[in-house]
Computed example of a mutant assay.
Amino acid sequence: MPVYVENRRTSRSTLLSRYDNPTIIDTTSQATMPYRKLSPFYPHGNIPIPFSQGYYAVSVEGIWQGLKVFVNSDIDQSKFAVSNMRGIKRTSKANGQIIGHRKGVEGKAILDYVTAKKEIYIPCYTWVIEQYLQDEMASLSKIAANSSLILLDYNTGSDPFDLTKPVSHATLCKNHLEALV
């Protein structure tokens, strides 16, 4: 059966009208367990930070936010340790325009948005799927074998080369599920 990614803000009634008897799973930090673990904010722990031998973070989002470089602010290693899923985001409003993501904690290079998605975010989230989310992915695979499956996410961007949209972690889950078939 097919797997779809939809915006979490879409009403349940709208989703039910678009799809034939789907199973709807929230994959955000607002989800219930066990699928809350699919959120990039979830504190799995011991996630290796790319290009940073000996450095680890609690969550994928902590890595993504911690390695951001702004006009008025360099990386923020404190984001690597955030375990309560709150206060992780770093914004342009508070730090000035985003320059990019540092290629590693001690790296000199600054990666552009697309490169950072390909070399930081996607590998980190994929690592978490492979290391921590086997049970959840197996459960989703069983659901998808019997019905249409809708994964909810706040972002629905599926193209890592798209500069206008963040990559959806639910899309990364969808891609992983489809690769299992």
Rank of each mutant, 00 (worst) to 15 (best):
A145M: 02
P166T: 08
K142R: 12
H169E: 09
P166Y: 03
E178F: 06
K142D: 08
T156C: 13
I150L: 07
A179L: 06
S148K: 04
L149G: 11
L177F: 00
L180W: 08
D162W: 01
C173E: 02
A145C: 03
P166L: 06
I143D: 05
N146S: 13
S168T: 05
S141V: 08
K142S: 13
S141A: 15
T171G: 13
L163Y: 09
A145I: 00
L172M: 12
L177T: 02
N175P: 06
S139D: 08
C173M: 08
D159R: 07
K165C: 15
Y154Q: 06
T164Y: 03
T171N: 14
L140Y: 06
A145S: 11
K165E: 12
S168P: 02
P166E: 06
I150P: 04
P160Y: 03
H169A: 15
K142P: 04
D153L: 06
F161Y: 09
E178N: 13
P160H: 09
D159M: 05
K165Y: 09
S158C: 09
L180M: 14
N155V: 13
A170Q: 03
A144W: 00
S147F: 01
S158P: 01
S158E: 04
S158W: 00
S148I: 01
S141W: 03
C173P: 05
L172W: 01
A144L: 00
T164L: 07
S168L: 01
S148W: 00
T171Q: 12
H169M: 11
K165T: 15
L140I: 06
V167M: 14
D153Q: 10
D153C: 14
L140D: 08
N175W: 03
D159C: 10
A145R: 03
E178D: 12
I143K: 07
L180R: 12
K142W: 01
L152G: 14
L172D: 06
N146K: 11
K165N: 15
S148M: 00
S141D: 11
S139G: 12
D162V: 03
S139E: 00
N175T: 12
L172R: 10
L180K: 13
A179G: 15
N146E: 05
K165Q: 15
A170V: 03
K174Y: 10
A170T: 03
A179I: 01
L149H: 04
S148H: 05
S168Q: 02
K142E: 05
L172T: 10
F161I: 08
F161V: 11
N155T: 15
K165V: 15
L163V: 14
V167Q: 11
N175S: 15
D159W: 00
S139P: 01
H169P: 08
D162Y: 04
D159F: 02
K174Q: 15
V167K: 08
A179Y: 02
A179H: 07
A179S: 15
D162E: 03
H169T: 13
L140G: 14
S168G: 11
N175R: 11
K174E: 10
A170D: 05
S147E: 04
K165W: 04
L149V: 05
D159E: 07
T164F: 05
L140Q: 07
H169R: 10
L140C: 12
I150D: 02
L177M: 04
A145W: 00
S147H: 10
I150C: 09
S141C: 14
T171D: 13
T171A: 14
S168E: 01
S139A: 13
